[in-house]
């Protein structure tokens, strides 16, 4: 399998007078269709790394390739387009749009690229909601759902445009263990079904170990990479 994401010599430094080096010469690649987890202590730089991979943040220096296109030199509109088409995000605090219903939230990534909403796309959104088990609450406003339901909505939304990559930052950070287990199972299923690449930051060792590969970050450096046979 070819690499879908490649990071070359990535450094991230915060501050101008007092400099904090948050990422230190990171070289990493992720294979298309793989299921990866990133672990590390709080403040070690995991989120920073993930945000750079998602083109939301810029590295201080180094090169980022997504789907073999170099992104750190793209302009903002090109990046917006790339994110919309290629990357699905699941954040720790799910970040649904509270003004919209569950179904509308799932449709949003599609509506961003095309304002013509077809029956096909509504069907796809409904299938995704079915997949995450939310058919019965699809017309609820985002604020009228439980935390786990909101997180599952965010997963369905991340998948709406059939992205090659899903980046998830502690997607189950504030859920109970049973919901956590369900959501991981769900992401695994999707990974198998659609060959979507998953890169997931987690604190949960048990969960991390279910991935194909674990990357551990310590003080802004890749400390350990472990391939796990599945």
């Amino acid at each position: 399998m070819p690499n879908i994401i490649t990071l070359k010599n990535i450094n991230k430094v915060y501050g101008t007078t007092i400099k904090t080096q948050v990422l230190n010469n990171i070289n990493l690649s992720f294979e298309e269709g793989s299921f990866n987890s990133i672990i590390g202590a709080s403040g070690s730089g995991k989120s920073t790394l993930l945000n750079i991979m998602g083109t939301l943040d810029n590295p201080t220096d180094g090169e980022v390739f997504i789907d073999s296109k170099r992104t750190d030199t793209m302009n903002k509109n090109e990046l917006a387009d790339l994110r919309n088409q290629t990357i699905g995000f699941i954040f720790q605090f799910h970040y649904l749009l509270p003004e919209f219903t569950c179904l509308e939230n799932v449709l949003m990534p599609y509506q961003i690229q095309s304002s013509k909403l077809t029956k096909d796309h509504i069907n796809r959104a409904e299938e995704l909601l079915d997949l995450v088990g939310l058919s019965n609450v699809k017309n609820n406003l985002a604020t009228n759902m439980s935390g786990g339901q909101q997180q599952r909505t965010a997963i369905a939304r991340a998948l709406m445009n059939n992205p090659k990559i899903v980046l998830a930052d502690e997607p189950t950070g504030n859920l109970d263990s049973e919901s956590t287990e369900n959501i991981y199972q769900l992401m695994r299923d999707i990974n198998k079904k659609f060959n979507t690449t998953f890169i997931i930051i987690t604190h949960d060792k048990g969960i991390a170990e279910k991935a194909d590969r674990i990357v551990e970050i310590i003080d802004g450096k890749v400390k350990m990479e472990m391939e796990l046979g599945s």
Binding site: A80, F89, L97, P98, E99, I112, Q113
Partner: peptide, 12 residues
Amino acid sequence: QIGILKAMGIID
């Protein structure tokens, strides 16, 4: 909301 919409790909 605007931030999350931008993350999902709306242009400025």
